[in-house]
Design a protein around this nucleic acid. Sequence first.
DNA 1: TTCGAATATGAATCCTGTC
DNA 2: TGACAGGATTCATATTCGA
Lengths: 346, 346
Amino acid sequence: MEALPADSIDVIFADPPYNLQLGGDLHRPDQSKVDAVDDAWDQFESFQAYDAFTRAWLLAARRVLKPNGTIWVIGSYHNIFRVGASMQDLGYWMLNDVVWRKTNPMPNFRGRRFQNAHETMIWASRDADAKGYTFNYDALKASNDDVQMRSDWLFPICSGAERLKDEAGRKAHPTQKPEALLARVILASTKPGDVVLDPFFGTGTTGAVAKRLGRHFVGIEREDAYIQAAEARIAAVEPLDASALKMAAGKRAEPRIPFASLLEAGLVSPGAELTDAKGRWTARVRADGTIAIGEDAASIHRIGAKVQGLDACNGWTFWHVRSGESLTPIDALRQRIRDALGAVSA
Amino acid sequence: MEALPADSIDVIFADPPYNLQLGGDLHRPDQSKVDAVDDAWDQFESFQAYDAFTRAWLLAARRVLKPNGTIWVIGSYHNIFRVGASMQDLGYWMLNDVVWRKTNPMPNFRGRRFQNAHETMIWASRDADAKGYTFNYDALKASNDDVQMRSDWLFPICSGAERLKDEAGRKAHPTQKPEALLARVILASTKPGDVVLDPFFGTGTTGAVAKRLGRHFVGIEREDAYIQAAEARIAAVEPLDASALKMAAGKRAEPRIPFASLLEAGLVSPGAELTDAKGRWTARVRADGTIAIGEDAASIHRIGAKVQGLDACNGWTFWHVRSGESLTPIDALRQRIRDALGAVSA
DNA sequence: TTCGAATATGAATCCTGTC
DNA sequence: TGACAGGATTCATATTCGA
């Protein structure tokens, strides 16, 4: 990065090492082993060593950024807080933090934490008083059903045909990002012809998307194998026509509403009774979002299945709340919540 | 917080000042003024001053936390990165970052950034090696259509009747959090009877929810007006019945049953054959509660692992007994013993 | 060839009680 | 405190396998 001229880059996208600190091996419930990110480039002696590394590249990045340039940095809870604090210390000015919500994250196999289902991106300008940075507000809004783009984005992880493989059929890079994510970043914060720098180029997702979208790019990478994979990949990319540069919209789906949300919304109270349509069974609602018949407590689905002697049951349609003479399926209460959510995507 | 005894708190929920740096008033497109958070308690001279404040309260919080206690801190991009880095520096161990996605966030009026539609919570244990912290995995899963709870939560902001107002009808606190958010936090990470500390109590959302859910709480607040609003609010809260507060627990909480108990109960006989679900392997039960293939005898787990060439195996679900045409997992026989035990103790 | 079943896998700081 | 062993634990998607 030192070789680049100062004030020459419009946007930086950086996916630095996350400094994961893994204990032993992790196995799925079927006893298969999870392929951990244990590469040497992700190992640091201490937080201090990681901070020194972070400040060094952030400082170099700030030098090459144009006064109205902006920077994106992606990370997880392992590193993003340290990175963010360093960015503020060095004079970057935060514009947003943006959450990449994964449609298909890896589960938490041991059931000891919440499923780690998102990563965080920081979007910042070079200086606190920078006003002229690029933000294609109208294009984003138009591509988002004419409502302004939120700070939480929904994309699948990079897999299938998009995921680069080596000769042996293994993933070429352990942390390849989806092109859809980069496309939104670039379409949001650059103009055609701008120069995008990626100081942790890896297998070149940033370069591939930049080329396709008619932006120039500079990639920096240490590992030969990654460089070769990136070069082959980018050579195969066809730039789009100027007229075709439109936004890939994020996926929209019905959000999953936990039964607990009915409690939180006050539509059902802890201690309330649920019955089936014919009033044959009655269960009592508990504060934790399970229901109970006697000592037997579980989800609305499991208890519904159990009383009927079935393997499965849709508790949303099976269970009802009584309001005066009539019974209302709890699915109708769920629909009320969904209606209230409006355009918020899953 | 200095007055509290050390190692006395199960969970801390903290909503510290956000250190917002607003350059002048913000107006909506219709020229109405946005009611910004510009209270005196939210003003800091510099990042250094904010960091010193943050480290001081985080340090005091860590002293009062039990060894297996956990802490939640909520913030926005203005402060959460500094807070998170300080937490790591002080020895807290991050378990998750959790994103609160707002169904109805304030729009970005200027159209110069993404709509700031989420806040970030950090959930951390006191020490890196703390394994015994409370996480009600099974209850959360059962309340969420039987899939594990993710790190991105969807809730409306606090408004309407839930939002506390002062005598003049203005909001009593500028950043009142929704009770639904606190309910999920408390249900996820505490047991009934636990003690929850909120060092930035404000108008007492944490206390109100803790009281309703049968948890004890300690609130710390400097502003008299907030204290009075919180006291009145919490006095009006009715705790839920103990029966509604029972937490769902999974197999982990079930009493251990040695395989030998199946022999003693006559559910399996010495010399009987066990097979896996597909009938690929067969082992013979021995009177001492081990099973054997040829001369090779060990526990149901070790033999199951060995035949599959794996390091581990749950013998309870792997091995089956034949009854006529069908195979019954020995786990079902174990369940019969547990049911019988429950009947006795109940 | 087709369809359903079985297998593979992803930035993961992922167990607990007893001797 | 360390070693040992019991046995609990997964969601969405893509690909391969088998009938």
